[in-house]
């Protein structure tokens, strides 16, 4: 942590925040999500209350051009070659919102119908079954950061000791194929938000409430190397390791651990989004691919939520296999 950077420590404040109850999954590992209203779009831009940004220029260490995953750009892990132009998508590390300006859609009132969603992020053990059954490509990237740090799979078996961790190093296409193999699909962004934060009237900015809790999720930290073990885990953690961060519908690790793909592409205007009218808002809101970016939610072990709670809304290139990109699947109610 940066010296001089004050972190909010809302845990233990006058109003203790209760932990959401565990929900038993069905035979498919899914939990039901009741229909409800959400506000979709940028909800909040800027640091959480009480958080003091480091001086202009960003935290020391961030400027170091690393050999780390260059695809992590935008998560605070910027690896930038000398002479390269500065990225136009600003990173969370600088204290600026990571959501690109063109993506800051004014919030819309959106009705989400009931559905089911995986209680946990898809584990590596579960993904291995898909790889064995289908002959699909391994989670593998032919780069040093992926080899040296043990991310790559060298067979359709998870790297040692990580079977119950979320699968990462999957692209949006990989995620889509996995869910399809299970007879499921990726959630829309609207569905994901309802499942993670509950209906809008509850007013949560985190799955458990409104106050930051440093040990409620597997998060990253402000400064390079961005990995952070103050929550007990430097990288991914076994799914369900943070019951205090559970969502109102019983989702484990909705925030933190691994980013989760949605079925929506990034859009620059609500005009590009399919929807139907419903009461005083919209329903069936969806912006299907193809697009150059796909919307991801939930942040990761590599992302600092203290900078920007709304930063849990982000966009990835759909083809890249990142060390932070995971998923959970959704389906209709039985």
């Amino acid at each position: 942590m940066q010296p001089g950077v004050q972190m909010p420590t809302n845990e233990g404040d006058a109003q203790p925040v209760p932990t959401n109850a565990a929900v038993a999954p069905d035979a498919d590992g899914m939990v039901p999500v009741a229909a409800g209203w959400i506000k979709l779009g940028a909800r909040r831009v800027g640091p959480v209350p009480g958080f003091v940004l480091p001086p202009a220029g960003g935290a020391p260490g961030n400027a170091a051009a690393g050999a780390d995953d260059p695809s992590a750009q935008g998560e605070g892990g910027a690896a930038r070659a000398a002479g390269a132009p500065p990225p136009r998508l600003e990173e969370g590390q600088s204290g600026r919102p990571i959501v690109p300006a063109e993506d800051r859609l004014s919030p819309r009132r959106v009705w989400v119908s009931a559905f089911r969603i995986d209680r946990t992020e898809v584990t590596r053990a579960a993904y291995a079954k898909f790889l064995v059954a289908t002959g699909y490509r391994l989670p593998e990237v032919d780069e040093n950061w992926a080899r040296d740090d043990g991310w790559n799979w060298t067979s359709p078996t998870p790297p040692d000791g990580t079977a119950d961790h979320p699968v990462v190093l999957v692209s949006w296409y990989d995620a889509t194929e996995y869910c399809r193999w299970r007879g499921a699909r990726l959630p829309t962004e609207a569905e994901w938000q309802l499942a993670a934060l509950g209906p809008v009237e509850d007013g949560r900015i985190f799955p458990w409430g409104n106050a930051w809790g440093d040990r409620r999720i597997n998060h990253g930290q402000l400064a390079a190397p961005n990995f952070d073990d103050s929550d007990g885990y430097l990288k991914t953690s076994p799914v369900g390791s943070f019951p205090a961060g559970r969502s109102p519908f019983g989702l484990e690790d909705a925030f933190g651990n691994a980013w989760e793909f949605t079925s929506d592409r990034r859009v620059s205007s609500w005009d590009q989004v399919q929807h139907k009218p419903y009461q005083d808002g919209w329903t069936d809101v969806h912006a299907p691919m193809p697009g150059l970016y796909v919307a991801v939610r939930g942040g990761s072990y590599y992302f600092d939520f203290r900078i920007n709670p709304a930063g849990e809304r982000h966009a990835f290139l759909p083809e890249l296999r990142r060390k932070t990109s995971g998923l959970r699947c959704a389906a209709a109610l039985p």
Binding site: S71, Q73, R80, P85, R88, L89, L317
Partner: peptide, 10 residues
Amino acid sequence: FDAGKFGHLD
């Protein structure tokens, strides 16, 4: 090359 690497593709 640098399109994919740096993520600023506009």
